[in-house]
Design a binder for these strands. Structure first.
Lengths: 197, 197, 197, 197
DNA sequence: TGAGTTAGAATGGCACCACCCGTC
DNA sequence: GACGGGTGGTGCCATTCTAACTCA
C-alpha cells in the first residue's frame, strides 16, 4: 500500500503523521518512509535518535528501495493547489491531507478539497491534527463542514499534545517517549491506521 | 519602511503577523500590505470582514501602489532555503521570520538562520509566535539558543491565543474581536511594532 | 414549494427571514435561496462566512437551478405597490410579507394588503419581525388590526434580537452564532417554518 | 438651502429625519418638505395630525412652490446604487444618507458611499439613526469605519426611541409628543440641524 | 393630571467554574 | 498530586428603554 501525505498548509503535522503511520504499518509488514519534503524533517527526526523500526530514505531513492517493502509512506511537501494535489493522488493508493482546525485556513482547505473532488479523485482523506482539548469546538465544526460537503475524513483525530514534540526532539516515536500522554498520542495514530485497513 | 515576512516553516503565524504589524504601522502612517503567498490568506482575511484600516493587495500590484504608502508589509511564502531568504532580505529594509517553538523545526531554523548570517545579512529578525503559556519552556529555550548564536530576535513574543483565530475567522484585526484576551493579543503585536521603530 | 419574500417597506428583516426560512427548509429537503434584491444582501451574507447548508444564487439563475431543489425561497425587493406584489404572488405558492410594527408604516401596509386581497389573492401572509420585547404592544396592536381585517398572519413572530445582526455580520445562520439568545432567535423562525408545513 | 435625504437601505429613518430637519429649518426660515417617496409617508404623517408648522407637498409640485421657501428638504426614495445617489446629489446642496448601524448593510453602505466619493462628489453626509443605547457598540464601530474611510458623517446621532414612532403615529413632531424622551429625541435632531448651519 | 417608581427585557462586561494540558 | 494558564459555559450586575402603577 502506498500512502502519500500532503498538506494544504504548512505546520499541520504532516511529518508527524507520516512518521507515526509508518510506525504503525511497520507493526504489520516491512514499511518504508520516503521523505520528499524540502526541509527533510523526517530524515532529521530519524537521525536524531536511535533510529526507527522502519526504514527512512529520501524520496529520490524510491525506485531503488520500493520493491523491498510492503507499505510505503511518502511525506511530500506543502501543496496548496488542487492540481498539485491531483499529481500526488495519482501516484499513490491514498492521499492523506492533515489539517489543523484553524479558521484562517478553513476556506482555502475547503476550496482545494472540493476542487480535488471535482477533478474526479476520491482517493484522498482529511485527517484532523493538533486538535485542542474540549471545550474548544473548532475541530468539530471543521469536521461537520467537511462531512456536509461530502469530503472523506478520518473518524480518528490527533490531539495537540506536547508528547509529539518531545518525540520529535528526541528522535523517537511518540510511543517510546517519556510523557504522561505518550500512549494516548500513539493510540490516536493507531486508530487512524486501523481505519486505513 | 519595507518589511517582509517569510517563514522557515508553514503554520508559524506569518499571515497573522503580517496583518497585525500592518495594522500597527497604519496607526503611524499610511500602510500597504502586499500578499505574496500562494494561498492568498491575507487577502481572504481582509475580504471576509468589513475590511481593514490599511490597504491589502496582491504582491503583483506592488509597482502600481507602492508610491502612495509610507510603510509596506510584504507577506511572502514559505522559504526553507537560506538562498531564498537572502533574496527576500535584499528586497526590503527588514525581514521578519516568525517561528513557532517546536523541537521538530528548531534544527532546521537554526541552520537556515546561521546560513543567512554567513551569507552576510544582518537585516533580519526572528519573532517567536504561538508561544504556549508557562510553564512550557520551549520558547525560552529557543530564544536562548538563538541569542547564543547571535541571531537577532524580538524581545516581544506572540502568545498562542484563540483570539487570533477568532479574528481571522471574522475577518478582523484581533483588537476588534470579541474575546477575553483580545487586548493582550493586540498588545503583543504592538510591543513588536514599537521594537521596530 | 416556492416561497417569495417581499416587503412593503425596507428594513423589515426580509433578507434575514429569507435566509432563515431557507435554513429551515433545508432541514427537510434540498433548498435553494434565490437572491433577487438589488443590494444582493443574501449572497453577501452567505459569502461572508463559511457558507450555508443550502445553496444561494442570484435570481437570474432560477431557470438553470430550480429543477434540482425541492424548496425554493426567493428574496425579492421592496414592493410598496399592490400591483407589484400581485406579480410576485402569481409566481409562487406563498408570498410572505415581513413587517415591522411601526406606526409610521402601519397605514400603508394595511392599505396595500387590503388592495392585494381585493385583487383576488389570498396566498400571502404577513410575518411580524423585529418585535420589541414587552411591555411594548405595537406588535400586538398591528396583529389585531390585521386579523380584524381578515389578513392572514403568522402566529409566530420574530423578536428584535442582536443575535440576528451578529449572525449576518459573521455570515452565519443565527443558530450557529455565539450569542445568548441564538437558540431563541432560531426557534422563532422554526416556529414559522412549522406553520408553513 | 436644498437638502435631500436618500437612504441606501429602507427602514433607516429617512422620513423621520426629513420631517424633523424640516421642522428645525422652519424655526429659522420658511421651509418646504417635498415628499418624493413612493409610499408618501411624509405626506401621510402630516395629514394624520393637526399639520406641521412647515409646508409638506409631493415632489411634483417642486417647481410651483420652491420660490416661496428659504429651505427645501426633499425626502426621496431608497437608492442602493451609487449612480442613483449621484443624480440626487447633483440636484441639491447637501445629500444626507441616514443609516442604521447593522452589520448586514454595513458592507453595501461602505461600498456605495466610496463609489460616490470616487465619482467625485463630496457634498453628502451620513447620519447614524436608530442608534441603540449603550452598551451596544455597533454605532461606534460604523462611525469609526466611515471616518477611517474619510466619509463625512454627522457628529450627532439619532437614538432609537419609541418617541419617534409615537410622533409618527400621532401625526406630530416628536417635540410635541407625550413621551418622557420627547425632548431628548428632538434635541438629537436639533444638534444635527445646527451642524448643518 | 403629572412626576416618580417599579417590573421586564436585552445588551455588554465581569467573575466564577469545570476541564484540560504542562511542569515541578 | 499541586499549581498556573487558556477555553467555554453559566450566572450576575449595570445600563437602558418601555409601560404600568402610585402618589401628590
Amino acid at each position: 500500500m502506498i500512502i502519500t501525505l500532503a498538506s494544504y498548509k504548512g505546520g499541520a503535522g504532516k511529518t508527524t503523521s507520516a512518521v507515526h503511520l509508518a510506525a504503525y504499518f511497520q507493526t504489520l509488514a516491512p514499511t518504508l518512509l520516503l521523505d520528499g519534503d524540502k526541509t527533510k524533517n523526517a530524515l532529521n527526526w530519524s537521525q536524531r535518535g536511535k533510529g526507527f523500526s522502519f526504514r527512512v530514505a529520501p524520496v529520490d531513492q524510491a525506485a531503488r528501495l520500493a520493491k523491498n517493502y510492503e507499505h510505503i509512506v511518502i511525506d511530500t511537501g506543502q501543496r496548496p493547489d488542487a492540481a498539485d494535489l491531483k499529481e500526488a493522488v495519482d501516484a499513490c493508493d491514498l492521499l492523506i491531507i492533515p489539517a489543523t482546525p484553524s479558521p484562517l485556513d478553513t476556506d482555502g482547505l475547503i476550496q482545494t478539497v472540493l476542487a480535488l473532488k471535482k477533478i474526479g479523485t476520491d482517493s484522498f482523506r482529511v485527517l484532523l491534527t493538533k486538535v485542542p482539548p474540549p471545550p474548544e469546538r473548532d475541530a468539530l465544526e471543521l469536521r461537520k463542514l467537511l462531512e456536509d460537503e461530502g469530503v472523506s475524513i478520518f473518524k480518528g483525530e490527533i490531539p495537540r499534545l506536547k508528547a509529539f514534540e518531545k518525540a520529535a526532539g528526541a528522535g523517537e516515536i511518540v510511543q517510546q517517549t517519556n510523557d504522561r500522554n505518550a500512549t494516548r498520542a500513539w493510540d490516536s495514530y493507531m486508530a487512524v491506521g486501523k481505519e486505513l485497513m
